[in-house]
Simulated scan of single mutants.
Amino acid sequence: MAKYEISSTSVLKSWVKKYTSHSEIKDSGKGMSQAMTEGRKTTFEERIEIVEYCLKHQKNY
Rank of each mutant, 00 (worst) to 15 (best):
N60V: 08
E5N: 09
K3M: 09
D27N: 12
Y53V: 14
E5V: 06
E38H: 15
G31N: 07
H57C: 09
V16Q: 07
A35N: 13
A2L: 06
S14R: 13
S23K: 14
K59H: 11
G31K: 05
R40V: 12
T9D: 10
K18T: 07
I48T: 04
V16T: 05
E24T: 07
A2D: 13
K26H: 07
L55S: 15
H22N: 12
M1V: 04
S8G: 10
S23C: 01
V11N: 05
S7T: 03
K17T: 03
K17S: 02
T9G: 03
Y4E: 00
K18V: 01
Y53R: 15
G31P: 07
I25T: 07
T42S: 09
W15A: 09
K13G: 04
K13N: 05
L12Q: 02
E38V: 14
D27Q: 04
E46C: 04
E52I: 15
I25L: 02
K17D: 12
T43F: 14
Y61C: 11
I6C: 01
T9Y: 04
H57G: 09
C54E: 03
I48G: 02
G31E: 05
Q58P: 15
E45N: 10
K30M: 11
R40E: 03
T37Y: 05
N60T: 08
T37V: 10
T43K: 02
S21P: 00
G31M: 06
E52L: 09
E46Q: 11
T43I: 04
N60R: 09
E5L: 08
